[in-house]
Every structure is written in C-alpha cells, then in structure tokens.
Design a protein around this nucleic acid. Sequence first.
DNA 1: CATATTTGACCGAT
DNA 2: ATCGGTCAAATATG
Length: 321
Amino acid sequence: MDSSWHGNLPANRKKAIDELVRGQEIAAQLKLVMNKSIGVDESVFAEDLVKKIMNSFNSSLYILNGGEFDEVASQIPQVGSPCWDGRKSSKDSGESGRGTAELKVKDRRGCYKRRKSSHSRTDDSTTLTDDGHAWRKYGQKVILNAKYPRNYFRCTHKYDQQCQAIKQVQRIQEEPPLYRTTYYGHHTCKNLLKASQFVLDPSDHHDIDSSILISFKSNGDHASNKPSNSLLTSFQTVKQECCHKEDDMNIPISYDPTTQYNNQASSSDYLLSPDDYMSAFDHGDVISGVNSSCTTSSHSLDMDGIMMESADFDDDGVFGF
DNA sequence: CATATTTGACCGAT
DNA sequence: ATCGGTCAAATATG
C-alpha cells in the first residue's frame, strides 16, 4: 500500500540484488565444500537444502530483476469466448453424438495459447515429490532425445478457482531415479483441503512406513476428497501403480511413476521439495507447508523461509522483499 | 456416478 | 516439417 520499497527504489533494489548474488555464490561454495566433507547420506540431504537455498536465491533475483512469475495467465480463455469451457458442469457436451466430435475438434483452432516462455522453477529430486497441491495430469509427451516422457500437470482447481499453476515432471535419470519438476505460474487456489493432510515423519525420511498421518479435517471440497490414498506416501502409491502396469514395465516410456503420485496431497515428501514455496504464496498453502517441515530439527530453516515469504508477499504479483 | 488418467489428435512455435 | 504443449474422448478407478 504505502508505495514503500518494492521495486521503486533502484538503489535499494540493486543492493538487494547484489546481496542475493553474493548469497547465491556462497551457497554454491557451500555446496562444493559439503560434497567433499560429509558422508554420502548427509550429503544427499544437505544437497537438498542447498538446492532449496539456491532456488530461493534464483527466485528472488528473478523477481528483483523485473520478472514477475508470470503466470500462465495468457492461456486463460475469456469467459464467454469460444474457447471457454469452464469444465462444463456435466458431460452433456460429449453426449450429443460422436458424429460431431470432429467438428468440435476443429473448433479448437485458436482456442488455446501456449505458455509463453515464462519464468519457471525447476526442482530435481530423487523421489516423486509432491508440493501439497492437487495436480491433475493432462498430458504426456515423448520428448526428443529424452529417455523418458514428460508429464504435464495442471492444478486441479484450474477451472473451479482459475488457478493457473502447472508443472511438468520428467524422469531424467535411471539410477538412481531422478525426476525433474518444472513449475510454471503459481497457485491462486485456496487448496486447504488437499494440503491439510500431511505425514509427519519423525524418524527418518527413508522410513516411510513409520510415517504418521495427521489429517486436519477441514472440509470444503467434497468433490475430490479421497483421503484413503493420502494415507500412502508417494512411494507407496507409486509402488502400487507399478504393479498395475507391469506389462509396460519393460518400456521405460510407459513405466512412468511420474504420472501416479500427484493427485491428492500425499504430502509426506513435501519436505523433500518445498522449493515450490515460491508458487504457493497464498496463505493456506503456506500454512500447510509449514507443518510438513519437521523431519529433523534442521528443517526449522524451512519454516523461517516460509514464514517470511508468507508475511511479505502481497497479492497482485507485487512481491515485497 | 463423479472424478482422474490415458492417449491420440490438434495446434502454435520454430 | 517437426517438436512440444494442450485438448478432450475414451477409459479407468473408487
């Protein structure tokens, strides 16, 4: 409100950028040092932390440099435009006859705009991480020169809350499995329900079976609430699905756990990839994120980050820093 | 029955 | 022409 500082003061902004760049460099150095000086186990975990720090720096720098997490907003068809479907309340449209299907398809021309290369955040993880949001898969594509297909997800609330967040998940490495998640846009949905269940994992995040589920039964969206699955961690969910598709297993392209883990907020591994915080500005999400960071004492670091962000970000893409 | 996933077609960008 | 992103009908799931 008060015109205060955001962006308006070039001098301050430059200082902030300089400071962030410095922090970024230091974090990079820290990463190098850590790789040499700690055991494998810790280094995996520590590396994750460093990655978060680096992501945070990247995002901050991007914002300060004038980027604005630009939203995939350009994709949103106007209500009432030929392309607006609003996810029709019923499937009436489909019923009227197969004969018209082709016509409809042709009508698609000009109906969707693709995301202009907006800012994205990537996160590599050895697990199929979930960020506490409800995602729905809408596509999968074989990518040239890539061993595994790319999977496309949008926020489940794309239509009921006009949430434009999307992400792509692609396996990029066989052994150990490594998945790259690229986020575009940020969540504008109030996704309290999905994010209200999380798994606390007091012992060790390798030991999934000892996870404790805490469910905040705030209700609200009956439509897609399927708590049963949330009891499982992502790992388990993936395992299950793998069994289902055994016939595809031999073909990497088909064996594709990336398609399975999303859906409900199986937030157990939230703590493994929380750099989606930048995309979870809205308060409900942030709150849910806080709760999940408790694997070890060192995770209090995350909390601070979140709290800070939740306090500082304003709506309308005006980012307070 | 409602919702999610699969998957081939369509479309925009290059 | 090709590639990658999205759509949407068909199908699966609970």
